[in-house]
């Protein structure tokens, strides 16, 4: 776990981790720009901050806000003032239990989840929102407090990358400890596979909702987990414990798929009943869902 360091972030990272952070940052940037390029909005322009008025320049004002066009026309110095929106406080909660280590055809759920989380936090950074990271397993597994800016982003990325998935899951305790430091209301995105009783999980998430947080439950699952597409007897090892099941998948494939869909539906239904959004994130290349969901919910907050 990487704690926030007053001496600067870079000095605490090893070379490999620093490379990975940089790669993740680049990845996130390209993804976000790519996703938003169609909308004509630039994350770096703060498109949600609209121009309000000009005022006279007083010494000490940041020169970057000087409107040089007006000076050219009037030879008078004016500062551009923007409509300042309230910053969203984004909390990314990530499940780093053993079940997230399941690997399908491409990435593991954990790898996909940290990329999705990275993109969202990058976007938050671009929106000048403050963001934090909470990791949980059977309890709290890591925490990066709220902050903003690129350095903070890197801290978050380092925490994401440096916390491998392992051990079991205790949604109650884990979520409670992970979100105990989230005092200010904001947007909380929980990335997990939610492999537990849907009602129990959602009740825990609902507590955040009741505390005024805007909760998005992002269920990460691998399509292969849903299919159980094996044609021979298989030993299924539980990544969160010693359990091994020897199963002929052919026998229960249909029932399993049905159960998986039922589980997803139950999760979705429970989330809706408790008033927060549920998005299903099959591991793949479709990162637009978490991105647009984040943006949409942020906008809703501003327009409320």
């Amino acid at each position: 776990m990487v704690e926030d360091s007053p001496h600067g972030f870079s000095s605490l990272l090893s070379g490999e981790l620093a490379d990975r952070v940089r790669r993740l940052e680049l990845f996130s940037r390209f993804r976000v720009e790519g996703l938003l390029s169609g909308t004509g909005k630039s994350p770096f322009k703060g498109f949600t901050a609209d121009f309000l008025q000009h005022r006279q320049y007083f010494p000490g004002d940041p020169l970057k806000h000087l409107d040089w066009r007006v000076y050219g026309k009037s030879e008078r110095l004016f500062i551009r003032e923007y409509e300042e929106l309230t910053n969203t406080r984004l909390t990314v909660v990530l499940d780093v239990s053993g079940s997230m280590s399941h690997t399908g055809a491409s990435w593991s759920k954990h790898e996909f989840a940290i990329r999705a989380a990275a993109i969202v936090t990058y976007l938050a950074m671009a929106q000048r929102d403050s963001f934090s990271l909470a990791l949980f397993r059977e309890g709290r597994a890591g925490h990066v407090p709220f902050g903003g800016g690129r350095q903070h982003l890197r801290r978050v990325f380092a925490a994401l990358l440096d916390t491998p998935p392992r051990d079991g899951t205790d949604f109650s305790r884990g979520l409670a400890e992970a979100t105990s430091t989230v005092r200010h209301r904001g947007l909380t995105m929980v990335f997990s596979d939610f492999m537990d009783d849907p009602e129990a999980v959602v009740r825990r998430l609902a507590q955040l909702r009741y505390r005024g947080h805007d909760v998005i439950a992002a269920q990460v699952h691998d399509p292969s987990e849903q299919e159980l597409d094996f044609n021979s007897v298989t030993r299924f090892h539980d990544p969160e414990g010693p359990t091994v099941l020897v199963v002929d998948p052919q026998l229960i494939q249909r029932q399993y798929r049905l159960a998986f869909e039922t589980h997803l539906a139950a999760l979705k239904g429970a989330c809706h009943r408790h008033g927060f959004e549920f998005i299903a994130l099959p591991v793949g290349d479709a990162f637009e869902v978490p991105v647009f969901t984040y943006l949409q919910r942020r906008l809703e907050r501003f327009t409320r």
């Binding site: 079940s99 997230m100 280590s101 399941h102 690997t103 759920k109 596979d193 492999m195 537990d196 699952h221 691998d222 987990e225 849903q226 159980l228 094996f230 044609n231 021979s232 007897v233 298989t234 030993r235 299924f236 090892h237 539980d238 990544p239 969160e240 359990t243 099941l245 020897v246 199963v247 002929d248 026998l251 229960i252 029932q255 399993y256 159960a259 998986f260 589980h263």
Partner: peptide
């Protein structure tokens, strides 16, 4: 022959697999 071939898989959705296995596996066999 197919039953002899066994592979090992780490399965993330053991919660669901366990449920189905306990209720339907014997019948389906």
């Amino acid at each position: 022959l197919f039953r002899r071939r066994r592979r090992d898989v780490t399965w993330g959705a053991m919660y669901i697999l366990r449920q189905v296995f306990e209720t339907r596996s014997r019948q389906m066999l």
